[in-house]
Simulated scan of single mutants.
Amino acid sequence: MAKIIPPLNPLRVFEAVARLGSFTKGADELHVSQSAVSRQISLLEDYLQVRLFHREQRGISLTEAGRAYQQEIGPAFARIVAATQNLLTQSRGGPLRVRAYTTFAAKWLMRRLPAFQQAYPEIDVQLSTDVTPADFSSDALDLAIQFGDGGWPGVHCDPLFDDCITPVCSPALLDRPGMPLRCVDDLKHHRLLHSRYRKEDWPYWLAAVGQPALAAHPDNMVFSSSILTYQAAVDGLGVAIGQVRLLDHELDSGTLVCPLPRVVRKGLAYYLLRPQRDAMPRKVAVFRDWLLDQTRHTRA
């Protein structure tokens, strides 16, 4: 005896509408019109010779038969989705392994990864942090985000964004009694915050704005990382030199402000590196295209 299988597209539409409780929401999830959803449900009801929904003035509701049918096929569709995602992950060579600098990962990439995972749930991103140069011949990596001049031999490099620096501080420092911060010369009254790995930023910026002598500032505080330096600025300990494009969240929220108008480009940039291969794996291509699109919208 032949197995009775209803037309699968109407069945898929029924599962979405029954789960979401709305023709409109089902249409949105499936990216079709509400009238198309209604036609598919009618096709399924005609095939089964069973009424699956009550059409009411305030919306729809499952009939008793429809509810029983949904309870049977809903888990089946969930298993199909899970099995498909597992198969895609395995067939595409496992997780996507990405390495980035800690500051870039914490202040920029981590805030955007949830959106990527929502858009591409089948790609499992494994993120690690390190400042050592990536060696694709020995490191278990698909992609690396590094900082420099783009001169890495034997790899493909996509520029992400330039290194743009400017002083940043808590808004509470702007009008501190007796110690305002409104021009470069006012910096002599404020503590300068430094990151150990970017100790030349203050001298570079001060030279660019014509005040190199202020680099000999007597009141300094040095931190072991840029992340700690930025947090110290948020907490009002002094004025830091900020990588503007890594601080868009703090600047948009107002926890940090740029007290002085000059942004200086240092000539270096963040790059996305990948090994030279004949073909780019799909997971790499998808992440690369998404990352480049994200950087186009990053604060200039």
Score class of each variant (00 low, 15 high):
His54Gln: 02
Arg55Glu: 08
Glu56Phe: 00
Glu56Asp: 09
Gln57Lys: 10
Gln57Glu: 12
Gln57His: 08
Arg58Ser: 10
Arg58Asn: 04
Gly59Cys: 01
Gly59Asp: 00
Ile60His: 05
Ile60Phe: 05
Ile60Lys: 05
Ser61Ala: 15
Ser61Cys: 08
Ser61His: 07
Leu62Cys: 04
Thr63Trp: 01
Thr63Ile: 00
Thr63Glu: 01
Ala65Met: 10
Ala65Gln: 11
Ala65Tyr: 08
Ala65Ile: 06
Gly66Ile: 03
Arg67Pro: 05
Arg67His: 09
Arg67Ile: 02
Arg67Gln: 13
Arg67Asp: 14
Ala68Cys: 03
Ala68Gly: 03
Ala68Val: 07
Ala68Arg: 08
Ala68Trp: 03
Ala68Ile: 04
Ala68Asn: 07
Tyr69Ser: 14
Tyr69Lys: 10
Tyr69Val: 12
Gln70Cys: 06
Gln70Ser: 11
Gln71Met: 09
Glu72Pro: 00
Glu72Ala: 09
Ile73Val: 13
Ile73Pro: 04
Ile73Ser: 05
Gly74Met: 10
Gly74Phe: 14
Gly74Lys: 13
Pro75Gln: 07
Ala76Val: 15
Ala76Arg: 09
Phe77Pro: 02
Phe77Ser: 01
Ala78Asn: 10
Arg79Pro: 01
Arg79Ala: 11
Arg79Thr: 05
Ile80Val: 14
Ile80Lys: 05
Val81Arg: 12
Val81Leu: 10
Val81Gly: 08
Ala82Tyr: 00
Ala82Cys: 00
Ala83Gln: 15
Ala83His: 15
Thr84Met: 05
Thr84Tyr: 03
Thr84Arg: 11
Thr84Cys: 04
Thr84Gln: 08
Gln85Pro: 06
Gln85Cys: 09
Asn86Phe: 14
Asn86Met: 15
Asn86Gly: 11
Asn86Pro: 07
Asn86Glu: 14
Asn86Gln: 15
Asn86Cys: 13
Leu87Ile: 09
Leu87Lys: 09
Leu87Phe: 11
Leu88Met: 09
Leu88Ser: 09
Leu88Ala: 12
Thr89Pro: 06
Thr89Tyr: 08
Thr89His: 11
Thr89Cys: 14
Thr89Ser: 13
Thr89Gly: 10
Gln90His: 06
Gln90Tyr: 03
Gln90Trp: 02
Gln90Cys: 01
Gln90Met: 05
Gln90Asp: 05
Gln90Phe: 04
Ser91Glu: 15
Ser91Arg: 10
Ser91Phe: 12
Ser91Asn: 15
Ser91Val: 14
Arg92His: 05
Arg92Lys: 03
Arg92Trp: 04
Arg92Asn: 13
Gly93Met: 10
Gly93Arg: 01
Gly93Pro: 06
Gly94Arg: 14
Gly94Ala: 15
Gly94Leu: 15
Pro95Ile: 08
Leu96Thr: 01
Leu96Arg: 00
Leu96Glu: 02
Arg97His: 13
Arg97Gln: 13
Arg97Leu: 13
Arg97Cys: 09
Val98Trp: 01
Arg99Phe: 02
Ala100Met: 11
Ala100Tyr: 11
Tyr101Trp: 05
Thr102Arg: 15
Thr102Ala: 15
Thr103Trp: 04
Thr103Gly: 03
Thr103His: 07
Phe104Pro: 02
Phe104Lys: 07
Ala105Ile: 06
Ala105Gln: 12
